[in-house]
Simulated assay, not measured.
Amino acid sequence: MKYTTEIVVDVPREEFIKKMDDPENMKHWQQGLIGYEQLSTNPGQEGARMSLSYKMGKREMNLVETIIKRNLPDELYMTYDTKGVHNIQKNYFKEEGDKTRWVSETEFQFSGFGMKLMAFFMPGAFKKQSLKYMQDYKAFAEKGESVLNS
């Protein structure tokens, strides 16, 4: 399953990247994030891995993020892996005056039967969640609003 989402954030690209590149800021725009742990000695660089833990409703989910391509301020590619799911995320950051256009190409590959069923019957749920993270990042970057306060 593949889809593209995009949003314009009213901050200059340099500021956008600085806020996004700090893992301490993830808790302010990734609803449900419980914590993260760097698994590599080269955090933030190509090949670096990080463990992420989320609580979504009553479910806890652990993912491993791997940075595949880091060509900032223009692009950043990552993969996210958890049981039965491989997610490829290609992010592009375009300067538009004092604003930044964030375009995200997402691909989900499912190996588990349950996840394949969910993707088949509820493909919009995945895109909706991606867009929610983008909107929450926009609120954080522009106004300092945190999902921790909601």
Rank of each mutant, 00 (worst) to 15 (best):
V103L: 09
S104T: 15
E24R: 13
E15Y: 07
K99M: 08
S53E: 13
G124N: 07
Y77F: 10
M50P: 01
K132Q: 13
H86M: 09
D81Q: 15
L72S: 08
M1E: 08
I67N: 13
T82Q: 06
V103S: 09
S51C: 10
K143T: 13
Y3N: 12
K90T: 02
P123E: 00
L63Q: 08
A48F: 00
G57D: 09
A141S: 03
V64I: 12
G114C: 08
A141L: 01
E95D: 14
V147W: 01
G32W: 00
S40D: 11
E65C: 10
S130N: 13
I7E: 09
Q129D: 14
I7W: 03
G57T: 05
A119D: 03
L63F: 15
I67Q: 06
S111A: 10
A125W: 10
E14C: 06
F110N: 03
E37P: 02
E96K: 11
K2T: 09
T4C: 12
M50G: 03
G97Q: 06
K18Q: 14
T82I: 05
D136E: 15
V9W: 00
N87L: 13
K132F: 04
K138P: 01
L39K: 13
R70I: 06
Y54E: 03
N42H: 09
E46P: 06
D22H: 09
D10M: 04
F93A: 02
G47N: 03
L72F: 06
P12F: 00
P23W: 02
G114Y: 07
T41Y: 14
Y137L: 04
M26C: 14
I68E: 08
Y80C: 08
F121C: 12
F121I: 15
N71E: 15
I17Y: 04
I34A: 12
T82E: 04
Q45K: 14
E60S: 13
Y80D: 05
S130A: 14
T100N: 01
T106Q: 11
Y36K: 00
M115C: 10
M122S: 13
E15G: 04
I34M: 11
V64K: 01
R13C: 04
Q109N: 03
K19A: 11
M78G: 13
V103R: 04
D74H: 13
D98R: 02
K127N: 02
M20Y: 14
G57E: 07
E142F: 01
T106G: 05
M20S: 11
N42A: 10
K94R: 14
L131I: 08
E24H: 14
F120V: 04
G114E: 05
V64C: 02
V64N: 03
K99L: 07
A48H: 01
P43T: 02
I67K: 06
E60W: 05
G57Y: 02
E96Y: 07
T4M: 14
F110M: 12
I68M: 09
D81L: 12
E46H: 06
S111P: 06
Y77E: 11
N25E: 06
D21F: 13
Y3G: 05
K90V: 04
F121Y: 14
L52T: 00
V8G: 08
S130K: 01
G112V: 03
R59S: 15
E6C: 07
F16V: 03
N91H: 05
P73C: 07
Y92Q: 15
L52G: 00
R70G: 06
R59Y: 12
L33H: 07
Q45M: 12
E15S: 09
